[in-house]
Amino acid sequence: NQASVVANQLIPINTALALVMMRSEVVTPVGIPAEDIPRLVSMQVNRAVPLGTTLMPDMVKGYA
């Protein structure tokens, strides 16, 4: 199964993503693939992302 990017902490709106904020986990539904974690670093989220939430492409500015 494909691992997705999951929030490792609460990520406030407009926060630039850092490695420590993300982990990979096999979840349903599938979100952003875990292999894209390096690409996500320094991109901003466009909403608050609670701990344990799967990151979806529409949550990250400039990802989709």
Rank of each mutant, 00 (worst) to 15 (best):
V5K: 00
Y63T: 03
N1I: 11
R23D: 06
G52D: 12
L19M: 13
I11K: 01
V5R: 00
G52C: 04
L17W: 02
V49L: 09
A48Q: 15
V41W: 03
V30K: 15
L10I: 10
I13C: 07
V5Q: 01
T15D: 03
Q9R: 14
P38S: 10
G52N: 10
M56D: 04
A34P: 06
Q2C: 07
Q44R: 14
I32N: 01
P57E: 06
L55H: 01
D36S: 12
M22N: 01
P29W: 03
G52W: 04
V26A: 08
A48W: 12
R39D: 07
Q9L: 11
A3D: 06
S24H: 07
Q2H: 14
V60S: 00
L55R: 00
V60C: 03
P33C: 05
M21A: 05
Q9A: 09
A3P: 12
N1V: 15
R39C: 06
R23T: 08
P50C: 05
M43C: 06
P29K: 05
A64D: 15
P33E: 04
D36K: 10
T15K: 05
E25A: 12
Y63N: 03
V20R: 10
D58Y: 10
V20E: 15
L51N: 11
M56W: 05
I11V: 06
P29M: 05
A18R: 13
P12E: 10
V26K: 14
V5P: 02
G62T: 07
L40W: 02
S42C: 05
N8W: 04
A48K: 14
T54E: 00
N14G: 12
V20T: 15
L51R: 15
N1G: 11
M22I: 12
N46C: 05
P38A: 10
T15V: 09
D36G: 05
V26L: 13
Q44G: 05
N46T: 15
Q44N: 11
A64P: 14
P38W: 14
L55I: 13
Q2P: 15
A18N: 13
I13K: 15
K61A: 13
T54I: 07
T53M: 12
M59K: 01
S42E: 08
A7L: 04
M43R: 10
L55Y: 00
L10R: 10
A16K: 14
N8G: 08
T15M: 08
V30G: 10
D36P: 00
V30Q: 11
N8A: 14
N14D: 13
N46W: 08
P29D: 04
P57M: 07
A64Y: 13
P57C: 05
R23M: 06
E35V: 13
S42D: 12
D58C: 05
L51F: 13
